[in-house]
Computed example of a mutant assay.
Amino acid sequence: MTALGVAAGRAIESRRSDGLVDDPYAEAFVVAATPRVRLPSGPNFEAAWTMQSTYIGVRSRFFDLFCAAAAAAGITQVVILAAGLDTRALRLDWPAGSVVYEVDQAGVFEFKNGVLAGCRAGRSAHRVVVPADLREDWPTALLAAGFDPARPSAWLAEGLLPYLPAQAEADLFDRVHQLSVPGSRMAVEHLGPSRAGTAERSQPLSEVLGVDIADLMYLDEREDPGDRLRRYGWDVARVQASEFAQANGRFLNDDGGGLPTRTVLIEATLGSS
């Protein structure tokens, strides 16, 4: 349901004449899903989605630009952690020879691949699905799927960290670092320094999706992802989601349950030392 909520946000954003993302597949996921996540059909329902879809557009734009920068730097293998209903392998302009590995649970791919088959989706990059639980030994599955740890890679952790226990998050960053060589890059969405109030702020979105979002999250405190990556030797840059939104002609506030004003978007590059 959370993946469908994100897809619905991308679908709404894609309808805008000034949309920050153009995802031709997002609405197909929403239409095919059971139970359904309805797209806006009236002013009251649309109001509940406004901040959610705006934030999803902003976030998607950040990660899209990250992918474009990684590709321009010569990185041709990309790993999307908890890929959900992400369609970047299909909708972005990838250089020849690019491979996008999508890591998520098998049930997600069963639904996703069925919808994409019905869309007759093309391929911009070679898309490789890796059924695995990120709380378990996913690196073995990734390596078996063809990932080459001797080549620079780009990693995306979008809409993921709040749904992992603290130890699983720590293990995730450890494993990404172990699988990365100098020149590798990582983009991370981080809810911010404090998770207090998350349950209250997520209530509007929970009502729209019919799922208690806060109940799916692990709200224990853990090390800041940027600080963790710096300890490993990565060069880190960070921007508040609200600032990135403003730079792209959008405004975020705390309405809609997305916690956007506290969210930090992080980019990191592994140096040679």
Rank of each mutant, 00 (worst) to 15 (best):
G122C: 07
A26V: 13
V264Q: 14
V176N: 00
F66Y: 11
D215P: 00
A117F: 03
F62H: 09
A247F: 02
S53K: 13
A132G: 01
A154Q: 01
R222C: 06
Q178D: 14
L270V: 03
E136L: 13
V31I: 14
P149Y: 02
D255Q: 11
Y232C: 02
I75V: 14
V30L: 08
A157K: 02
E189C: 13
M186N: 02
D137G: 08
A28I: 08
A199N: 01
P204A: 13
M51Y: 06
L39A: 09
S153Q: 10
M217A: 10
G210A: 07
G271Q: 10
R38L: 13
G192Q: 09
L156I: 15
F66V: 09
R16T: 12
R230D: 03
F173G: 00
G19K: 14
Q203P: 01
R59V: 15
V239Q: 07
V31R: 12
L81Q: 03
S41V: 07
D254L: 05
D137I: 12
P131S: 04
Q240T: 03
R127M: 11
F45Q: 15
L160C: 10
L160H: 08
A121Q: 01
L205E: 01
P95N: 13
V176M: 10
A125I: 05
M186R: 03
V130C: 05
N248E: 09
R36K: 14
R36Y: 10
P225H: 06
P35R: 08
P260N: 05
R38E: 14
L216D: 07
N44S: 12
P165A: 09
N113E: 13
E136A: 13
R231N: 07
G233A: 08
P225S: 06
H126S: 13
L142C: 05
V78F: 15
D137C: 11
A170N: 00
S153L: 12
Q246W: 06
A168N: 05
R238P: 02
E46D: 15
Q178H: 11
A11R: 10
D23K: 07
A7W: 01
A145C: 10
A247T: 05
A196S: 14
A117M: 07
G107W: 06
V115C: 12
A145Q: 04
F251V: 12
S180I: 02
T263W: 00
Y55P: 06
Q203M: 14
A11E: 13
R151L: 15
P139W: 01
S242Y: 07
S17Y: 07
E207Y: 05
A48M: 15
A73W: 06
S98H: 03
S194T: 14
W94Q: 03
G271N: 10
D104H: 08
A71M: 07
V176G: 01
P95L: 08
R195K: 10
L252V: 10
V79Y: 03
P40R: 12
G183Y: 13
L90N: 09
R230I: 08
I80A: 08
W155H: 02
V100C: 13
A154S: 13
A237W: 06
V99T: 15
H177A: 09
K112W: 01
F29Y: 15
D171T: 02
A168C: 10
V129F: 04
A8L: 04
A144L: 12
D93G: 06
A83R: 06
V181G: 11
